[in-house]
Each structure stands twice: as C-alpha cells, then as structure tokens.
Design a protein around this nucleic acid. Structure first.
Lengths: 189, 189
DNA sequence: ACTGCTTTTTGCCAAATGGCAAGTGTTATC
DNA sequence: GATAACACTTGCCATTTGGCAAAAAGCAGT
C-alpha cells in the first residue's frame, strides 16, 4: 500500500484523511503466471496498481500473430477499465508474465475517491499524460533504430525484465522474430 | 475560424458567448515552407490550430541524423507551449513542410479562456488524450510490420500527405532510408 | 531420472534493407 | 536556355533479417 501512496504523492499532495479514504477502498488482487488481468472485449471494471510482477499488453494482428505492445512493471497504475483516462483499448489483452500482486479499486470506489478528493482528477490526468508520453517516446525509438540497438535500449529501460520475460515476448515487442533476437543476443555476448 | 470551433465542439459543448470569447482571442499566423513553428529549446508561448498546410515534428538523434517523428495535418491542435498538456518535448522541432496557416492564441489569452470557460480544461484534456493514443497506436504498427506494409498504411492514414511531403521525410518517419522507400514505391507500382 | 512440452539456439538459404555512388529529373535563378 | 541546387531513382554489394526446420536447452510433472 505504501508504494501506491508514494506513487500518487509524486503527482500531487494528499492529506492524512484523503490517504485513509484511499486505503479504505483498496483491496488486493493476485494473479498467477499467464492469468489475464483483462481479456480483450471483457472490460475490467476496476483500477489497478501493480505492486509485484510483470504484466504484458498484447493484441492479435490481422494474421493472427500475437504482438506484445508494452510491458508494465512494478509500481505502475493500470487504468484499464471504463474510466475517462483509460490507458488501453478494448482489443488489447493484459496478462501476467509472472505471478503478480495488485492493489485494485472497484469502479464505484474509484468514483467515490474521484468525487471526494479535490484534485484527484488532476493527479490521474498527470499520470496518464506522462504514461502516454513515455510510451510514445519509447515506441518512436523502436522505429528509427536497428534491432540490436533496440534490444540494448530495451535492456537499459527495463533491466529488471530481461531475465523474467520470455525472449519471444521481447522479440515481439521489438518487432523482430525470436530467432533474430537470439542471434542478436549471441552477438552481444 | 469555423474549422477550429467545429473541431472543439466535437469534444464538448460551448454556447455562443463562449465561442465569441474564443474567437475574440484568436489571431492568424502564417508560415512559409521550411519556417519553424517551434525550434527545439525555444518554446513557443502559444497554442496553435493548423488550418492549412502540413507541419512536421522532428529531432536529431545521437548521430546527428534528422528523424521525423510525426506529421500534423489540417485541423489539428498544437499544444506546444508551456501548457500543462503540451504535446511535444523541448527537443523537438516543428517546421512547415508546406506553406501553413494557423489560428494561434497567446499564452495569456489561452489562460483566460481556460479560466473563463468551465469545462474547457476537460475538452483540452480529451483532445490531448485522444491525440496521444492515436500516436501510440500508429507508432506501434510501425514497429511490428515490414517496410512496405508500413508505407501502405501511411498512405491510407495520410492520403493527403503523399504528394505534398518529400519522400525523405516519409522514409524517416517510417524508419527506413530514402533509397529503400523509393524501391518500395517502385515495387508497388 | 525420465517423459513430454515449451523455449531458445543454430544452420541454411532467401528476401529485405542499408551504404554508397552515379545517374536522372525537377525547380529556381539568373 | 544554361546552370546550380536539390530530390528521387537505380545499381552494386554487404549486412541484416525472416522463414523454416532441426537440435539443444530448460522446465514441469511423475
């Protein structure tokens, strides 16, 4: 819970009372490896904050290939449900790459927090805006660089993921085949 | 001016009085081909809405190569200045690909509009959020597809740009060399 | 330890792309 | 209309990447 409050406080101030309100609404959700947090088409009516584990966002392209679009690591908010600022689209799947633990808020409780805490909306909007900008910047770099560079930058950005995420997911994220990534790894060694 | 109001009204309602306030603050800026709207490091203290022409957003990578990150076409808002929801980073350049015409608002006037019109903030946030999501979706597709597919999708998304934008800019946007794009065009013909 | 299953690595070859340079075309200017 | 500047195309070759399949490695359950 601490982690979630610390995270929020980076984006705005809250008093003790407000923090207590938030904590009183929070509950814990655990996911096991490969569980879905959100399946495409089935909206999750909740807001989550990932405290442990890694979640992967993926979708299927017109050829039926599974494409990994992002990774979500610890201490990040997941506005995946029907909130105005949601981060993902209904065609995306969110699934646990490793066992995960999340703090979750039901849609109703989230609404209550939003309505009660003045400035909450602004905080959430800041978080969403920063999240989107980060994603755009990362994706942009993935377009204009060769595969080896992309992999090296991925390793810098997500050093904690390298050993916990299957190579095939990383390859898909980088837009190359698993074979190519394997060769790139070999060359780097 | 019509176009700007129409654009805003897609995201929220305004009454006549509010529209008049906005129009009273608007002024026109024209740019000639290759003029900068915004140079990296020199912030533009204004909000712009592109009514005619095409603007290109680019930056320089560590090798000094110019990378085109986006194109902005007609009837899009440019929150490039020191507004909370700005769309571009200080290291990006915005320059006119063709002669351009924009509706612009000074920072002060924009602030006044924001403070006067209830719900204006919400409208702008919606616009920003949609903009960011679109960019992410487009960029994502640029990562996971081969160059020919990327070019074809670019043509679909921006049919109006193909003949107005130099090939080298498009190539850079797609993450390939101008030579490669030229060959791809040849194959498609 | 064995079995089956999945993931990763590797080899082979084909296709795509990049780097470079030359050639062609276009436009603006004088 | 000659010239220069710039953008686009093309050819050549090297490198990267993809597709496919087999081998190797890792992993879970028994």
């Amino acid at each position: 819970m601490e982690a979630f409050i610390d995270y929020i406080l980076q984006f705005g101030n809250l008093n003790r009372q407000q923090i207590d309100l938030i904590l009183s609404k929070a509950s814990i959700l655990t996911l096991r490896k490969d569980d879905y947090y959100w399946e495409a088409g089935k909206r999750v009516n909740q807001v989550g904050f990932l405290t442990e584990g890694i979640i992967r966002v993926h979708y299927y392209n017109h050829k039926g290939e599974e494409i990994t679009r992002y990774f979500i690591d610890e201490n990040h908010l997941i506005l995946s449900g029907p909130v105005p600022e949601e981060m993902y689209t209904p065609s995306e799947y969110l699934s646990a790459v490793t066992d995960c633990s999340l703090i979750v808020f039901s849609k109703q409780d989230w609404k209550e927090i939003t309505n009660t805490i003045i400035g909450w909306d602004a905080i959430i909007q800041k978080i969403t805006a920063r999240y989107h900008k980060e994603k755009i910047a990362r994706r942009s770099e993935l377009v204009s660089q060769d595969a080896a560079t992309r992999y090296l930058e991925f390793m810098e950005q997500f050093p904690s993921l390298a050993n916990r995420v299957p190579l095939s997911y990383i390859a898909s994220y980088l837009g190359i085949t698993p074979s190519s990534l394997s060769r790139i790894r070999k060359n780097i060694r």
